[in-house]
């Protein structure tokens, strides 16, 4: 005859053992260099916990606007799930004035004033650009909109040609959001989204490792 207390404890102990989980260790990936090529190299990233407000200026054509917005939403979701501790989030801003970043089609009217901080186009399919603030060291210069101050710190344009190939557009926007987050260079590996011309539509382990490292390094520049 099993004592009453033992009869109570045995099922609880069995339950506790059953709830244990065997540890599994996934393969590790090496982060690539994310620093900006300044002298010395500098780290740019948003403060941890920032919600980065992006205004998607899709232009007059509703179909093209929808393509750009869809590409942004999917890319933002991929980058958000690449970090473990909610280090950053993306949100859509209704207007350029309310945004930290503006994403627009090349060839459309530029949603902010770029005098003094123009993009280096040079035939690229897309460009992300920003400029240091000469008045506040360690910060990016805010763009103005129609001469009025705004919170915009970065601009991203994608060439209109990309609208003809939605899959390519999504890859390009995914890549550019990596730059928006602060990855200042291109990966040397073709498997990574942040390689300059990689035909990759999902973040690699190295992309994830890189963004995780970046957001646990003290920044030299914050937007």
């Amino acid at each position: 005859m099993i004592p009453k207390r033992i009869r109570l404890v045995l099922p609880l102990a069995a339950l506790a053992v059953a709830a244990c989980d065997a540890p599994t260790i996934p393969p590790e990936a090496e982060a690539y260099d994310f620093t900006f090529q300044t002298t010395p190299p500098s780290v740019l990233r948003w403060p941890v916990g920032t919600t980065i407000r992006v205004h998607v200026a899709g232009g007059e054509d509703p179909a093209r606007a929808a393509l750009l917005r869809e590409a942004f939403v999917e890319a933002a979701a991929q980058w958000e799930t690449a970090v473990l501790f909610g280090e950053y989030r993306f949100a859509e801003a209704a207007t350029a004035r309310d945004a930290d970043v503006v994403l627009f089609w090349g060839g459309d009217p530029v949603p902010a004033d770029t005098v003094g901080c123009p993009p280096e186009i040079a035939g690229a399919r897309a460009v992300t650009w920003s400029c240091p603030d000469p008045a506040v060291p360690g910060r990016l210069r805010p763009f103005t909109v129609d001469g009025e101050p705004s919170s915009i710190r970065m601009m991203v344009f994608v060439q209109r040609l990309e609208a003809n190939d939605p899959a390519s557009l999504k890859r390009v926007v995914l890549h550019e959001l990596g730059h928006v987050l602060g990855i200042g260079r291109h990966s040397p590996n073709l498997e990574d989204v942040m390689e300059a011309h990689a035909p990759v539509d999902r973040l690699s382990l190295a992309d994830r490792a890189t963004i995780q490292v970046l957001y646990h390094v003290e920044p030299d520049i914050v937007p």
Binding site: I25, E28, A82, L205, A209, Q212, H216
Partner: peptide, 8 residues
């Protein structure tokens, strides 16, 4: 446990 290479 993996940390994705982050060091965390």
């Amino acid at each position: 446990r993996g940390g994705g290479g982050s060091g965390i």
